[in-house]
Amino acid sequence: MIINHPILGPRDSQEFTYLGDAALIDRPDWQAEDAADQFHDYLYLRDNPAGAHRELWFHEQGDRSWLVVTRNTVTHEILNVELARDAARARGRSK
């Protein structure tokens, strides 16, 4: 597969390490009342869609950026690629 890196342009997916669902960005608040339940869901519950899927890829043999890649799991079409740091900020993550 070819991943269109937001900074470097098209790069072979061989250069990347795959992690999984981009929902891993949404790490729960440890001080929440139901933190244990939230962490349980965060860690163990995943959607497995046949279709568009937001997932995390690490450009290990490249610039070491984590990317959020939206990929159709049926056709491998890549619909969108963004820097994970931007995606994380957009989802309200900070320090």
């Binding site: 790490r27 995390l56 290990e60 950026s65 984590w66 820097l83 740091r85 995606a87 993550r93 320090k95």
Partner: peptide, 14 residues
């Protein structure tokens, strides 16, 4: 890799 994940994805403003 995990440290970069924490830096970029979990704590992007650190």
């Amino acid at each position: 890799r995990n440290m970069e994940f924490a830096r970029q994805c979990l704590f992007p403003d650190m």
